[in-house]
Design a protein around this nucleic acid. Structure first.
Lengths: 225, 225
DNA sequence: GCGCCGTAGACTGTAGACGAAAGACAATCA
DNA sequence: TGATTGTCTTTCGTCTACAGTCTACGGCGC
């Protein structure tokens, strides 16, 4: 028993800066996903280091990580280049995403309890509100939160980690068209929640699969235009 | 047209050492998977560096990569520790593996041509030969090659990469029991090849799912003993 | 004897510097 | 005029050095 008399949870853990490489990683990922760094662009270590006010070392380590996660290509003795997505790769990513999300939906339907369903419905409500208000940014963000919550309810950490990576990259390729589909998908979300609440694994799987397939179709429709 | 008169394909491309970090990565991964470095062990950078005859820097970068791929845990300001697999995590990994392999089987059934099926049958023949000869190591290696070939036939690079990572880790957790199941699985492989050759996607999916589920059951049977 | 505090050691995190390879450009020769 | 070669700049890969932080151990007070 601690005898300090301090409120247990209130201590803010003495906010530490945390490893520099992680912050560099976050910063670079942000720059990439927001298209501030364009696909194919050559990332010069010393430039980034100077720009971020750190040494080259943390930058290198961040680039390493970005490389293993597929955001940048690390050509030996030549440097880092922002990955250039191809049509084929985008399609393959969407296939994998469909797979992972569908499984997550199945597991969520299997595991979800009342509190989980409630949380989903809360996000749904906010999402619909955002759509009504034509707040596309909020709608997109809430969409991500919805899928993340499904993942959480699935209770499979490994699956969640893979899905998070795949999802983020899909979102990157997909941002140009993401805004179009902002509203539509929430109708599908509602059905999915019902299936999860009813513990209907098969239905949940099917709905999520169709849901992500819609996304794929939207993507291809744009790609051809 | 090159006028050197050198034989075109015969030049061995002047084998370059390649980035040091990659070789360190390979070396460490080998040490981990072979249990030379045991789970939970503290990996001291300077020790590894000295042992491998390189500086700390390449070691750090290799550890970074091993961290993102889940082989080691990198506790801030404390160093790298070989990841300790839990029962729960192993189970989750097996779930994901089942998912990925089943999808690969489906895609393989959809895409495979004569040459692909032939390659599978060749591996199968070698595998059965290894089993007959009680050569467990060869059987295990061929098993990996078989699954890798299925992945290749699936023609989805993203899927293949994820599956390779998951597979390798499953194999790591599973090595203690892998040897038991050396022979049994080849019977199942034969059926799978037939399904792929017949382009029967559903059957191929089902067979692969059952196949990997057998693996899971073996694992749990061992875990409880 | 028990617990707390201070100190020392070890290891990581970060920075800076040097050598080497790859690409670009210009000068030279056929 | 075209290709080739030499040089030069840029950038990466690696090494060494220093500062910050955590852990462990010994001494001190209660």
């Amino acid at each position: 028993m601690l005898s300090t008399g301090l409120p247990q949870g209130a201590v803010p853990k003495l906010e530490r800066p945390g490893p520099l490489r992680d912050r560099v990683y976050e910063a670079l990922l942000e720059l990439i996903t927001t298209r501030a760094l364009q696909p194919g662009q050559h990332l010069v270590e010393s430039e980034l280091a100077g720009h971020l006010g750190v040494s080259r070392q943390p930058v290198r380590e961040a680039l390493q990580r970005l490389n293993t996660e597929g955001w940048v290509d690390l050509r030996p003795a030549q440097g880092a280049f922002v990955h250039e997505p191809t049509e084929e790769e985008a399609d393959q990513l969407l296939t994998v995403r469909t797979l992972l999300e569908a499984e997550a939906a199945r597991l969520a339907a299997s595991n979800a309890d009342g509190a989980g369903v409630e949380a989903l419905e809360e996000i749904l409500a906010e999402g619909l509100k955002a759509v009504d208000a034509d707040d596309v940014d909020a709608a997109v963000a809430l969409n991500a939160r919805f899928h993340a919550k499904i993942m959480e309810l699935a209770g499979n950490a490994v699956l969640a980690e893979l899905a998070a990576q795949v999802d983020r990259r899909v979102r990157w390729y997909y941002t140009p068209v993401a805004r179009q589909r902002g509203g539509q998908s929430w109708v599908e979300h509602r059905e999915l929640i019902a299936a999860v609440a009813a513990h209907d694994e098969q239905l949940a799987t099917r709905l999520m699969r169709e849901h992500t397939e819609h996304t794929r179709r939207s993507y291809h429709a744009r790609a051809k235009s």
